[in-house]
Design a protein around this nucleic acid. Structure first.
Lengths: 195, 195
DNA sequence: AAGATTCGTTCACTTAAGTTAAGAAAATCG
DNA sequence: CGATTTTCTTAACTTAAGTGAACGAATCTT
């Protein structure tokens, strides 16, 4: 179980056994059942989540309708906005599947940074990389049609279609479930511009 | 001129005079004329940009058409993806106006981190905050119609409409210039749901 | 100031997404 | 296993965005 976390971190720095122990001693591995809500609108929470196994999603409620804004699966991490800006959350975070997560708050991070200063470099690099990736993903979204976004998601995250209800994928693509259903028919009837 | 930079940084940590001097000694303030291209598709560059005065934008070329993906104005910073992943850039960065920028690369950052370790904490916090903001902005985009995005941009960055050609704003909103022009007419004829 | 280019608007037409509603299919739960 | 709830699909209609083309206005250039 820890190996998923340490393999992920190994891309940035190699941890010593002692450093690994510091992390494990924090007792950050938690299990959640499908449907568990980790963060609610209005809450101010300090916790971030790293997915060991399973899938979590964030969404907002707009006029009583869920709008899914992100999916996080194995080796991805979710840092809610309210953790950074300390304001009540405007979104929800919930488990799409039974999940095992690393759950940590800012106090735990500071504790680790003190015992183990290299960890802050790691977090900086990680956060810079996540930012760069998020920008690239946003650029892609901004410059694509719903159909291109759908085909792109099929290529980049095919697993999501097996794990997640379609209406959640639809709002993730910025369209209604009806449009997604219709679009898929269009594409099988006329499989022209699939990449 | 430096005050814009230091005021910005003051939100995160208060710099000593000595620390300020270290930054100024790097000689990072540069002037560019409107239209200057800072980064081209295919280049691998290590530089990031912080806007002191002026406006820069990033865009990609898709089938010979520019797609604007970001505008950066006073006290905003632009870290191109190629700086992080060291791969050839897929996008351009250019000056929309005559601009004064802080231009710095990774080597300069490392130099500062060594002389002045608190700067790394600052960069981590900054980068975490930028990531959180980018996610929020993306969420907003994803869950809005083009019209809502336009009204939202009018509220949040009204200055852009004075500084930037409309066809660039159109692709920033994810639509064509024709659609934007049409939409504005619709809204003045029928000023119903403006916030 | 004249000429060239860029930019914004308009128009007619096509295509796709939103909306509302209904029902089928699948998953969940007792 | 059957009942209930959730999810997906289909359909008819409405609305808005994409496309291609044309033209005038604004802006650069020299």
């Amino acid at each position: 179980m820890e190996t998923i976390l340490f393999d992920y971190l190994a891309k940035y720095i190699t941890l010593t056994e002692e450093e690994k122990k510091i992390l494990l001693d924090l007792d950050v591995f938690k299990q959640y059942k499908k449907g568990s809500i980790l963060l609610r609108e209005g809450q101010v929470s300090d916790f971030g989540y790293f997915v060991i196994k399973g899938c979590i999603r964030s969404f907002t409620m707009v006029d009583g309708v869920e709008k899914t804004t992100a999916f996080y699966t194995e080796a991805e991490s979710c840092e809610p906005l309210c953790k950074i800006n300390k304001k009540p959350s405007t979104s929800y975070v919930a488990c799409v599947e039974d999940s095992i997560l690393v759950v940590a708050n800012s106090a735990m991070e500071v504790e680790v940074f003190e015992k183990f200063p290299r960890f802050e470099t790691l977090c900086r690099l990680l956060s810079e990389e996540l930012l760069a990736n998020k920008k690239a993903e946003f650029d892609e979204f901004r410059t694509s049609s719903p159909e291109q976004r759908y085909l792109n998601l099929l290529n980049t995250r095919p697993d999501l279609f097996q794990r997640v209800p379609q209406y959640q994928i639809a709002s993730f693509l910025g369209i209604t479930p009806q449009s997604l259903s219709r679009m898929r028919n269009r594409l099988v009837d006329n499989p022209s511009q699939n990449s």
